[in-house]
Design a protein around this nucleic acid. Sequence first.
RNA 1: CGGGGCGUAGCGCAGCCUGGUUAGCGCACUGGUCUGGGGGACCAGGGGUCGGAGGUUCAAAUCCUCUCGCCCCGACCA
Length: 565
Amino acid sequence: MRFTNIFIPTLRETPGEAEAISHILMLRAGYVRQLAAGLYIYLPLAWRVMDKVKAIIRDEMAEIGAQEMSMPALHPSEIWQKTGRWDAIGDEMFRLKDRGGRDMCLGMTHEEIITWLASMELRSYRDLPQVWYQMQTKFRDEARPKSGILRTREFIMKDSYSFDRDEEGLEVNYQNHASAYNRIYQRCGLEFYQVESDPGMMGGATAHEFMAPSPAGEDTVVLCEKCGYSANIELAGSVPIPQEAEGLASVTSLQEVATPEKRTVTEVSGFLKEDRTCFIKSLLLIGSDGPFLALVRGDQDLHEGKLRCIVGEFRAAQKDEVKDILGVEAGFIGPQGHEMRRVADTSLKQGVYIAGANKAGFHIKGIRPGEHFEAEWHDIHTAVKNDGCPKCGEPLDEKNVIEIGNIFKLGTKYSESLKAVYLDEHGKEMPMIMGSYGIGPARIAAAAIEQNHDDSGMIWPLSIAPFHVHIIPLALDDDVVNMAGSIYNELKGHRVEVLLDDRDERAGVKFKDADLIGIPFQVVIGKKGLKEGVVEFKQRSTMQTERVEPAQVTVKVLEALRAFQ
RNA sequence: CGGGGCGUAGCGCAGCCUGGUUAGCGCACUGGUCUGGGGGACCAGGGGUCGGAGGUUCAAAUCCUCUCGCCCCGACCA
C-alpha cells in the first residue's frame, strides 16, 4: 500500500479530550476519530488491525469447532421480556419502536436470540453439542463512555454460545474456550491473566475474565504469585493483615476516651496513636428493611457488592439521618450498646478495638467483638494489595487491568425461560445447558497499544500490526524512488504487507509518522546510503538500525518476520 | 445519576476575572522560492454564528439565566 493511497491523518499535537495512552496514540497516529461520546470511526489503519485480531479469533474458534453465523443487532422486545431482561436492564439498553409501534431494542448481547434459535431448531440429544458464534456490533448506552475505544456505546464483540446435554459437556466447551482465549491473546502479543469473576446478572455459577494489565484498565484484580489465585476485586476474598495492637491488647475493660473533633479513622488513629487496624469503622446504611450498621476494620474499605449479596439493596445514610436514627453524628458511631442490625467483616472477630462511643466527641477503647456486641459475620471488605491470599496466605498483588474477554457458565437460565429443550435418550425433555463467551477485538487492540508503546508512538506486535514493513524513501530522486519501488514490489511478491511512504515530505516528518504509526519494521532508503550501497533496516521496538545491501533486504525482512512470529 | 473541568479557525491554546478599535498566537492548510537524514526557512494568502438560546448594557467572547456537547473522578457496567 502506498501512503498517498491510504488515509492516515496523523496529528502533531494531542487532542485535548484524550487521556488514556491508547486513545491519544490512536488519535495522533490517524487510526480513529470520535463521532460522539463512546462512538468512534475506525480509519483504515485501525480497521486493518481489527481485521487481524478478528482473523486470529476466527482461526482459534474454528480450532475448537465453533461455527460462525450472524444474528441481527435489532431485536424485538418479546424475546427479552421472556427472560425478564427487558425489565431487569435499565437505561443501558437502547430501546426504540418500529413503525407499527412495536417495542424493539438494539442488542447488548445475544443470549436471547441465540437461545431462541436453539429452541426452534435443536430437538434431540443427537443435535448436541453446538457451539455458535458471531462477530456483531453491540449497543450499550453506557453511563460513562471513556478512555477512547476502551469503553464505548457501540462495539464489535465476538460472542459465542455453547449448547450441551449436561454439565460435563458444558465443562468441555468452557475449557475449550478458555484455552482458545489463551491462545488468542498469546498470538495477539498481550500480557494477560485469567481471573475468577463475578457472574453477576448473567446468571450461573462459574465465570472467568481475561484481563490485560494496564494502568488504563478500569478493573482491578488481585493475584497470588505463589499459588496462582487470581480474581476480580469484585469478588476476591482475602485474609487481612493481622491487627497491630501494641498498647491496646492489654486493655481489659472498656474505656471512654475524649476525641474532640476527631471523626475519620485517619484523624482518630493519629490522635490516639493507634494503628488503623485497631479501629472499627461503623457505617450506617439504609436497606429495604430499614437502617443497619456495616462494620469493617479501620484499614479496610467496605465492599458494597459483597454486602449487597447479603442484605440486598441499600444506600448510605445521610448526615441528618444518622443523627435522627442513632442520636449521634457520623464519626462517633460504635457497634455497641444498641439493638440495630449489624453486619461485620469476619476479620473483626479477632482483636481488641476502638470504636465510636455513640457520643459526640468520644471513642471507646477495649471493645472485643463477640463480647461487647454481636453481629452477622461475613466477608464484606475489599481485598487489597498485601492482604493474604485466601487460598495459601501469601501476600496478594494488585493490578489494574483491561477486561479483554469473559467466559460464563450460564446453565439453564436462558434455555428454561425460552424453552430451549431437547429429548434425551429416554425421550425425556431436558433444558439445554449453556455457556456464553465474549471477546472485544477493539479492547485487544487498545490493550496492545497500552502495553506496547514508547514516547514516539505505538509498537505493534507483528501479528496484529496494520502492516509488517514500512518503507521510507527519504528523497524523491529517481534512484531512491526506484530502489524503494523495487524493494516494495519484491516484498509484496513474498506476501509481506508493506506500507510505502511515497509522500513528498521531509525526512523528519516521515520518521516521526513511521514511529507514531508503529509498524514493527522500517526500511529506510536515503541518497547517502545508496551511494555506499546500503539501505537501513530498523526494528521499531528497539529502534536499532542495521545497514543492509539492497539485494539482501528481502531476506533480512523475511528472517525478521519469521523470528517474530 | 452525584462531583469537578472545558467549549474561541482543522489541532493545541491566549483573551474572560476588571465589558469598549478590525478577536489573537503556534501548528496545520493554499500559492511561490529555497531546502531535503528526525515534524526546515522565507514571502504571500484563505479560514471564526467565540457551542446554542435568552437576558443585562449605549456596547457582550467577556456579566447573568437556561440549554447542548465533550472530558475527568465516583456510582453503574447483564
